[in-house]
Design a binder for these strands. Sequence first.
RNA 1: GCUGAAGUGGUGGAAUUGGUAGACACGUUGGACUUAAAAUCCAAUGUCCAUUAGGACGUACGGGUUCAAGUCCCGUCUUCAGUACCA
Length: 940
Amino acid sequence: MNYDFNKIEQKWQKYWSENQTFKAVNNSDKPKYYVLDMFPYPSGAGLHVGHPLGYIASDIYARYKRHKGFNVLHPQGYDSFGLPAEQYAIQTGQHPAITTKDNIATYRRQLDQIGFSFDWSREVRTSNASYYKWTQWIFIQLFNSWFNNDTHKAESIETLEAIFEKAGNQTVNAVCDDDIVSFTAAQWQAFSSKEQQKILLQYRLTYLAETEVNWCPELGTVLANDEIVNGLSERGGHPVIRKKMTQWSMRISAYAERLLQGLNTVDWTDSLKESQRNWIGKSVGASVRFNVKDSDAVIDVFTTRPDTIFGVSFMTLAPEHELVSKITTPEQKAEVDAYILATSKRSERDRMADVKTISGAFTGAYVEHPFTKAPIAIWIGDYVLAGYGTGAVMSVPCGDDRDYAFAKHFNIPIINIFDGVDISESAFSDKEKTIIANSDFLDGMNYKKATKRAIYELEQIGHGMGKTNYRLRDAVFSRQRYWGEPFPVYYVDGMPQMIDAAFLPIALPEVEKYLPTETGEPPLGNATIWAWDTAQNKVVSNNLIDHKTVFPLELNTMPGWAGSSFYFNRYMDPENNDAIASKEAMDYWQDVDLYIGGSEHATGHLLYARFWQKFLFDKGVVPVDEFAKKLINQGMILGTSAFIYREEGTQTYYSKGLINDKNVQPIHVKVQYVNASDELDIDGLKNDGEFGADYVNAEFILEDGVCKVGREVEKMSKSKYNVVNPDRIVADYGADSLRLYEMFLGPLEQYKPWNTAGITGVHSFLKKLWKLYATDSGLKVTDAAPTPDNLKTLHKTIKKVEADIENFSFNTSVSTFMIAVNELGAQKCTSKDILEPLLVLVSPYAPHIAEELWAALENNGSISTASFPVFNASYLVEQNKNYPISFNGKMRFTMELPMDMSKEDIEKAVMAHEKTQEQLAGRTPKKVIVVPGKIVNIVG
RNA sequence: GCUGAAGUGGUGGAAUUGGUAGACACGUUGGACUUAAAAUCCAAUGUCCAUUAGGACGUACGGGUUCAAGUCCCGUCUUCAGUACCA
């Protein structure tokens, strides 16, 4: 019997697939366990060895839970809408659906050969109409809901209409737009239908709003902040301007508090929860109202320091603030306009990057201090952001660094309101040490007391109230792209109308071109059959649009995060045509027990998915309001790049050790031409299909007969030639070796470099494991009774591996297996009673070899259903302990003594030892510490 | 700046409660087998001193607590990640 891993692995992968070994059922006497990976975007490049890391970890856990008697749901699918397929379509004309299908086929082949225990019968693809039917359905539910701040829940929009009908909107406590006009029931009833729709839109959980976006006319699309470098598009280097556009938005801000509180109920890493907390950015303070002098205008500001109200010496508005044009005096108009123009040319990113330059302009207008009635100058400055708070701040230079710098720069007076603090050099912002002075009724109070009192006094005079502000902003939900979910929306007289859910899905239409139209409309503007017939309830030709029964459809598509925000629920019942999943399926599976994925989704996917889950919970669609109980972020596997060194301006390459002070430049070479000893395969390099030609005339100066390369750890990337393809590893060493090695590299959460050379270690472990069971001539396992040593090794291993899996410490259990196999080999163990349970321990990590040997031991069926061996502590009881004997804390020698020996006897035995006397050299010890079963320490 | 994680041999890393630092591997060196190579097996391998016996030093740095510190406490430095004129 040989360990022919390629044959064995293919055999078992086929077996699992044909027998549907890992198919999960939606009801069972067993307890349920749901293990989920973040599903991949199927890119054209395929997988590299870094991608499967998290999948291997979750697979080990899923297999372990099956051994432990759980009904395990372990699905996989594809986040298959996205930009790369669309860009490929623009370049080549190939339909993104075809590109996506091809890429998925590659992914599937690569995943299958690693031997994952996925239940592929539940696969979902976000770009399938049967899936995005539900993405569209959720959108409609959001449109038909508002958020009631009294109940802290989403409610049906009809309840809101009923209130308007009866009582107008004055008593409504809702999350809504800022510029709500108040009306009575009579006024509501008098509004036209269109006016009513406009008002309702200001309350809906998804709404149309004018949003300022980064618009790139050349590319015909909106860009995210991180797609812009120095005011130009990252792709192509085209100019980008700020532009107002009507876009769909999601009122995620309504859920800010619940998203914050919910973090306390889930077992996620602290760093991830902290990122989300920062992102939500709750700050508690007050809203203060200032009256503009000689005007009926008022300026509301948000401050976290109402206690410093008497330190206000000026106001600063964002240049975009709507009042700026209204209050600016004629004398100051030229200066203010020039400043506004200058800032509008800078992108938000540039403004943020350039923090040190202080700029601003005086409007010429004043507000009145709410208590002292003193006039306070109103400035504009770009350090105040239009998008946060009210876009206006009360500037207290003595207590805030930015206000201080601004005041100094423009020679604005600085009022000191802190007792015993010198502010001649810098502001004083230490809340804890604050004692207020020079502030009327706040004098002598600390921060806490003064804050409370200031809010109280503001409320008394109607100039403010306590307020909590969140940094979290509503999420723009429109994209000017083709390859995304179409909205189930058509427009009547400019107002959006939802298509009845009964007629979903609204399928993505075909287009001739994937670029924006000449008139600047999104790619769906190219579709010719893209109008909604309200009589027939179907999509019809644009020619039929008559604005009576046939209306134009929405041209934007949904963003990438739409489809990934509820997929974990869909896996529970993926074929269901009447619901995201049946109530029975959801009640059974509830939520994800273990979710594994990258930390880069901390403030994107993981926040949006929590938002939708909470919304669906409010609507009674899902049974829990947090979708994942436990979440682990796997670290990235980095590449180990290789460099050769070319002397400047020549074709001469020096081995690394010969560089000395020569003027050389390091050049990346493909890592596949470098062996474990950092030696370059020069012939391989010269014959490389892609780059071989570059080295035809190259001369390599060797040291000790070889050319050594330099090494550096970098992110794994095609451009650094350090990408390692798992296909190659699987072909050369097998999937079990790949799985073991990825785990053996180090702790799951950590960033760690890949080095293919090291894989020989785990590969020879598998060969040794095989040899425990089989020789060339056949199986060597016997019915011999296990020896105490055999049992000790086995049970030590059971205990350690079980604890390791529970702690997600997969790297240490691989070492434990190695130790066990080394020990059992040395013990010449052939006992089936030992070797059979050992296979179950190994099988989550190296399932193929485990299945093969399990079958060789004449077991029927898959090892995946075998139960996990039970640890028995009695085999580990030791008679003796090899005590380390230390002197002043330094271990000098060891001494074997019985476990049950008393403290006194241990001390006597140790003192009687000749080496003890040698160490003491005649001195009398001051103290002898004996910790039975652990250590002896002699002090003196 | 803030938040979080981390810093241990040539390399990846181990050390559940403070109790023999460097498990398990990679690499390196030497040896066996072989005409040779591969594969396999054996031995050595933290640094320094010492022929041996043994000793000194050693977990980023500086202090401290303790019989005993990689582990606990205080301070400093460095790296990585996220985030930021957030009022």
